[in-house]
Design a protein around this nucleic acid. Structure first.
Lengths: 160, 160
DNA sequence: TGTTCTGATGTTATATTATTACATGTGATA
DNA sequence: TATCACATGTAATAATATAACATCAGAACA
């Protein structure tokens, strides 16, 4: 199954190179420890450009000479998520490289229920709407996760 | 751990009775098959008034004379979610009775990272913001799930 | 009444996802 | 070099979820 992280065609080399560059930069500036396993995990997510399960990432890490036990993948992925370099897509029990690591954003994930494709979008409006609801409940917001289920452009066609 | 579905004190008998009443009504009118296990599962969620794991619900169902194997709980919970009588809280791998079954809503769940308390809020603004993002991506929205992680009023106090 | 169909339930087994616990290594700092 | 903090490796297991199939109960109908 394809499960790309964007619905439409694009020059993927830009995503990959750009994101890795930002990651390296953040590592230098913010003192992030982007160690070999962690960087490799990010590369794997970027290469595939789709939501991947932890065990799938683990397999690729093991092929790359790293450990082959679950914590190896979970630790690397947790690190990436903690530091805004990847996101966790809960509906799919999967992870995807963040496409906008340079900005402090509230991502919205659109997940196709037919083909499992995922696209990440930025939505400042969603963030502010959430914030006002939370304020009313006296709740302090730290992270916002929005997952939208529906039909991607391709599967809409197929359904017709 | 308590994990209530609302942060503030309230008359819980209203929630419980009201929601069950709406559920029964929907069963009659819309031809929903709210069978004994399904109704019991809803009662369990309402009684506890908090997010509960499937196995926790299963245990209570078994005590009530129903089957004690995982599919018993998963099927009942899936039914409730499908029909808008419960929600799945993915961050907690848990389920909670819907507090607004009468309305077609986009729930926002606020989840406390310290005590796991969950509160459900309605947010029409969030829905429309999501919709406009999705339109731009030519994505057809079917369900929206918003989970906000942060600190509930009680844990904010404790952290000070 | 009895037959047939559909969907719900029970049960066994197993798959998938995630964590705990502990040993080992590694690089910075005093 | 001693010590510390943190990263990694590994074994074992916990927690969550589903597949597959048998059985049952009620509706629709001859």
């Amino acid at each position: 199954m394809p499960t790309p992280i964007a619905f439409h065609k694009h020059d993927h080399s830009c995503c990959e190179g750009g994101v890795l560059e930002v990651a390296d930069q953040r590592a230098r500036e913010a003192g992030l420890r982007l160690t070999p396993v962690r960087r490799k995990a990010l590369e794997i997510l970027l290469e595939n450009h789709r939501a991947m399960g932890a065990y799938e990432v683990l397999e690729r890490l093991a092929e790359g000479g790293f450990g082959d036990q679950p914590p190896v993948a979970y630790r690397a992925l947790d690190f990436l998520v903690e530091n805004g370099l990847a996101h966790r897509i809960r509906r799919l029990n999967a992870y995807a490289a963040c496409m906008h690591p340079e900005t402090d954003h509230t991502p919205v994930f659109m997940i196709c229920r037919v083909c499992d494709a995922v696209a990440e979008a930025l939505a400042q409006d969603v963030r502010s709407a959430v914030r006002s609801v939370a304020d009313a409940a006296e709740f302090v917001v730290e992270r916002v996760n929005v997952e939208v289920l529906g039909l991607c452009p391709t599967c809409q066609e197929a359904t017709k």
